[in-house]
């Protein structure tokens, strides 16, 4: 069974003066269990709307979606999901500990195990000391970390995270990346949206790029990184020279450059591939889309 299946989903909102805004257009996607999927796109691309469609917060104009085999229109689809909304807000009159107990009980967790798990995730997200304080006293970063704590508390199979690194400092971002990689090692599915390419590069198996509501491309991150080699930096030590010199060889010129150096009796000390990173890949797609 696939963790998430989206089939030709569409969402059209009624804008001002009766204008129609197509937030998501004919989007299809399958995400397997154990996969980390990054949903990449600029602001207003339709990432959050897609996530809201998956969570049943808005209803699709067309198409369908399911999570762990349950249609997203049913509350049962959320039984296996940990959801972190974008810029989350929680009942601010509760403390972090009270909120986690509320979430755990909603998922049917029982008291001793629930308290143990709450302590574990509060410590993991560095909220243990602040656990008794009401959330209205929390900083934005603390609320974001609590958002992550509440998705981890019931150990779901699928994690849907809308901009999980938003509002976090570098330490918090590293922590979240570590958590996502840990979830991957446990065989969990993580679907997260972001507009920051480096987040995807470091943790994702696959990336989907969405622009203006249309899914433009779905690629394996590894493929982008390996197939994206555009050329090589070759470091050569010529006969009798004291220092190395560096030469750039395009992808199809590398054999020629190496052959020439060897023929001249030079020593090749380093060949370093120059690869197109995810950001360039993403920007290429954006440019192509804009050119159309």
């Amino acid at each position: 069974m696939n963790a998430i299946e989206i089939s030709r989903i569409c969402k059209t909102f009624k804008g001002k003066r009766g204008a129609r805004v197509e937030a998501v257009k004919d989007l299809s996607l399958v995400i397997k269990q154990g996969e980390i999927f990054g949903f990449l796109g600029p602001n207003g691309a339709g990432k959050s709307t897609t996530i809201k469609l998956l969570m049943g917060l808005v209803r699709p104009t067309g198409g369908s979606a399911s999570i762990m085999g349950h249609d997203v229109g049913s509350h049962l689809s959320r039984k296996h999901v940990g959801y972190l909304p974008e810029n989350p807000a929680f009942y601010d009159y509760l403390s972090a500990e009270e909120y986690l107990i509320f979430i755990g009980k909603t998922f049917g967790m029982k008291e001793p195990a629930l308290k143990e798990k709450a302590e574990k995730v509060l410590r993991l997200l560095d909220l243990w000391e602040a656990r008794k304080r009401r959330m209205r006293e929390y900083s934005k970063g603390m609320v974001q970390r609590l958002g992550l704590a509440q998705v981890l508390i019931h150990d779901p199979d699928v994690y849907i995270l809308d901009e999980p690194m938003s509002g976090l400092d570098p330490i918090g971002r590293a922590l979240v990346k570590g958590i996502i990689l840990d979830l991957k090692s446990q065989g969990k599915c993580v679907f997260f949206s972001t507009h920051i390419t480096s987040d995807v590069e470091t943790v994702c198996d696959r990336v989907g790029i969405v622009l203006k509501g249309v899914l433009q491309s779905v690629e394996r991150v590894e493929s982008i990184m390996t197939e994206g080699i555009t050329g090589y930096h070759v470091r050569i030590k010529d006969k009798g020279a004291d220092e190395d010199r560096e030469e750039y060889a395009a992808k199809d010129e590398i054999s020629e450059v190496v052959g020439r150096a060897q023929a001249a009796g030079s020593e090749i000390t380093l060949i370093e591939p120059k690869r197109k990173n995810l950001e360039e890949f993403f920007l290429d797609i954006v440019k192509r889309k804009d050119a159309r």
Binding site: M55, G56, L57, H75, L76, R78, K79, V81, Y83, P85, N87, P88, A89, F90, Y91, D92, I103, T106, F107, G147, Q150
Partner: peptide, 14 residues
């Protein structure tokens, strides 16, 4: 208004 519903409706409750 305060968007608490986003987090609560993400739970398995109708």
């Amino acid at each position: 208004e305060r968007r608490y519903t986003f987090s609560v409706m993400g739970l398995p409750v109708t």
